[in-house]
Simulated assay, not measured.
Amino acid sequence: MKLKKIIDNRQIGLLGAIGVLLILAVFLTPSLFQVGTIHLTIRNYSVIGILVLGMMAVILTGGIDLSIGSELALSGMITSLIMVNRPEIPVIWLVLLAITIGFLCGFVNGFLVGVLRVQPIVATLATMNIYRGLTYLASGGKWVTSSQYTDAFANLAGAQIGFYSIIWFLLILAISMSIFLSHTKYGRRLYAIGSNEASSRVAGIKPAGIKILAYTITGAFAGLTGILYSANYKSFAPNIGIGIEMDVIAICVLGGVSITGGRGSFKCVVTAFIMMTLVSAFLSMLPGMSLWTNALQGAIVIIAVIVNILTQQIAEKHVLRSRTI
């Protein structure tokens, strides 16, 4: 009960920070509140949101995936090149191909971490470079330009059915991930592995299989974002996605997902995503302030990590007190 109150306080704190940002934006960047601007902002940050959903699964197990930007680039480049060379292929097949590419990349990561027990940061740092190299090989170092895009491919992200279609992808995946984490045994096992891997083994859980599941989920989401990114911006280069993992990890940490695994509230992560989206959009509208976005995100990550450590220490003290009473 005490721990739940602490988590709820984090949610209140994030909502309070969002409130302060909105008040500042009212006076400094009133254009941010135009319906068209809000719609376009969410559209452009939907790719980050989808990646956050996948990354959360990995971090809950106590792992990390530094290769998501390269997975995004590889799937986006391959599907874009096929679209250019074989425009008659239905877009749905390209979507399935993008997800498959990401899935396979994630499976490799999961096998290295779960079965071969390579440290996650080492395994995904290596595959990050491998997948990026494959992207350059596939493209020959060339861009796919806007004039080469078919309308059907572009509509994958830009078609409007109330919202832009890319936003519908984000909403559907968010609902699915929330149900998976809260109401399935495999979702709960992600938390169990991250909390205490040895105890989970005793309980009959196979950590290797759960880690492979987590990394393949992250990979599949990264693969999907590759084709969505390409369709959204109608251009694609082999260096797309470099550094994007830092934004994704920052949001997860800000949302209270423990970097050591086992702890994390889905609703707090969603709130953190909204906050970071507002911060980035807000700063981009202020003259000269867009240069501060990365620095501010880094500061937010440091503060969030400190808060997470203090939160965990407070929770552990409450547990010890309850046992001694």
Results as ranks from 00 to 15, higher is better:
4 K>A: 14
7 I>L: 12
10 R>E: 09
11 Q>P: 03
15 L>D: 01
20 V>G: 13
25 A>V: 00
36 G>K: 00
38 I>F: 09
43 R>M: 07
51 L>R: 08
53 L>V: 13
71 E>N: 14
73 A>W: 04
74 L>H: 08
81 L>R: 02
83 M>G: 01
87 P>K: 11
88 E>C: 11
92 I>G: 03
99 I>C: 08
103 F>D: 03
111 F>E: 10
111 F>Q: 13
113 V>P: 04
118 V>I: 15
118 V>T: 15
119 Q>I: 14
126 A>F: 05
131 Y>S: 05
132 R>M: 09
140 G>H: 05
145 T>A: 15
147 S>N: 08
147 S>L: 07
147 S>T: 09
150 T>S: 13
151 D>F: 11
154 A>M: 08
156 L>P: 06
160 Q>N: 15
164 Y>D: 01
165 S>T: 08
165 S>H: 05
165 S>Y: 04
168 W>C: 06
172 I>E: 05
174 A>M: 04
175 I>V: 15
178 S>K: 12
178 S>G: 15
178 S>F: 12
192 A>R: 14
193 I>S: 15
197 E>H: 11
197 E>P: 11
200 S>G: 08
201 R>I: 06
201 R>S: 06
204 G>R: 09
208 A>L: 08
209 G>T: 04
210 I>G: 05
218 T>S: 14
226 G>H: 01
226 G>D: 01
230 S>L: 00
233 Y>K: 10
233 Y>E: 11
237 A>P: 00
245 E>P: 07
248 V>E: 03
252 C>E: 05
252 C>Y: 08
260 T>E: 12
261 G>H: 10
264 G>M: 06
264 G>K: 05
269 V>P: 02
269 V>Q: 06
269 V>R: 06
270 V>L: 14
275 M>C: 10
275 M>H: 03
276 M>V: 09
279 V>I: 15
280 S>H: 00
280 S>D: 01
284 S>Y: 00
288 G>C: 09
290 S>Y: 01
290 S>H: 02
290 S>T: 04
293 T>R: 12
293 T>W: 03
294 N>E: 05
298 G>S: 14
298 G>L: 12
300 I>S: 03
305 V>T: 14
307 V>Q: 11
309 I>R: 11
310 L>F: 07
312 Q>V: 13
313 Q>Y: 08
318 H>C: 09
319 V>N: 10
324 T>A: 06
325 I>D: 09
